[in-house]
């Protein structure tokens, strides 16, 4: 799943003109380190939902890569 998540995160980064990141780390902050704002996180959410059927923001905020992986049950 980490590979797929990396692909999705780089798609969102690419859409806002940011270069791809080479790897993901659980502690990475989605806003401060990956450069996402709330609208980018919305796009990230729907792209993840399309692949997994899981809405990562359905019941709480997620702040880091690790929290996304936890929501997806693949940590």
């Amino acid at each position: 799943m980490t590979g797929k998540l990396l692909e999705i995160i780089n798609t969102v980064r690419n859409n806002k003109g940011l270069p791809p990141v080479a790897e993901l780390m659980e502690a990475q902050d989605l806003r401060a380190e990956l450069g996402f704002d709330s609208l980018d996180l919305a796009e990230l959410t729907v792209r993840i939902e399309k692949e997994t059927g899981i809405d990562i923001f359905a019941d709480s905020f997620v702040l880091t890569v690790g929290e996304i992986l936890a929501k997806l049950g693949k940590q």
């Binding site: 796009e43 729907v46 939902e49």
Partner: peptide, 9 residues
């Protein structure tokens, strides 16, 4: 609708 538009750019 907005989520759909985001998904498809």
């Amino acid at each position: 609708v907005i989520r759909n538009m985001l998904l498809h750019g």
